[in-house]
Amino acid sequence: MSRILESAKETIAIEAKSVQDLASLLTDDFEKAVNAIMESKGKLIVTGMGKSGIIGKKIAATFSSTGTPSYFLHPGEAYHGDLGLIQDHDIVMAISNSGETDELLKIIPFFLRNGNKVIGVSGNPASTLAKNTHFHLNVNVEQEACPLDLAPTSSTTATLVMGDALAVALMKERDFKPEHFALFHPGGSLGRRLLMTVKDVMRSTDLPVIDAESEMDEVIGTMSNGRLGLAIVEENGQLAGVITDGDLRRGMKNQKNAFMDMKAKDIMTSSPKFIDKEMKLKKAEELMMEYKINALLVVENQKCIGVLQVYDL
Rank of each mutant, 00 (worst) to 15 (best):
L5G: 09
E6H: 13
A8Y: 10
A8K: 11
K9A: 14
E10K: 15
E10D: 14
I14A: 05
I14M: 04
E15V: 12
E15H: 04
A16I: 14
A16C: 12
A16Y: 09
V19G: 02
Q20D: 09
D21G: 02
L22W: 07
S24P: 00
S24E: 14
T27E: 05
D29K: 03
D29W: 06
E31H: 12
K32V: 02
A33S: 15
N35C: 00
A36G: 00
I37L: 12
I37E: 08
S40G: 07
S40H: 05
S40M: 08
K41P: 01
T47Y: 03
G48K: 04
M49C: 15
G50K: 08
G50F: 10
S52F: 05
G53I: 06
I54K: 09
G56Q: 07
G56K: 05
I59P: 07
I59H: 07
A60V: 09
A60N: 09
A60K: 08
A61L: 07
T62V: 13
T62C: 13
F63R: 04
F63Y: 13
S64W: 04
S65L: 09
T66W: 12
Y71D: 03
F72I: 13
H74V: 05
P75T: 09
P75A: 11
P75I: 08
G76L: 10
E77K: 01
D82Y: 02
D82R: 03
G84I: 10
L85N: 04
I86L: 11
D88S: 15
H89D: 15
D90N: 12
M93Y: 05
M93P: 05
I95T: 06
S96R: 05
S98D: 07
S98Q: 06
G99H: 03
E100R: 12
T101V: 09
I107F: 05
P109C: 13
F110E: 05
F111L: 10
L112R: 15
L112W: 01
R113W: 03
G115Q: 11
G115T: 11
G115P: 09
K117N: 00
K117M: 00
I119F: 09
I119K: 03
G120H: 03
V121D: 01
V121G: 01
V121M: 14
V121H: 01
S122D: 06
G123H: 02
P125C: 02
P125Y: 01
P125N: 04
A126N: 14
A126G: 11
T128I: 12
T128W: 06
L129D: 07
A130T: 03
N132D: 10
T133S: 15
T133D: 10
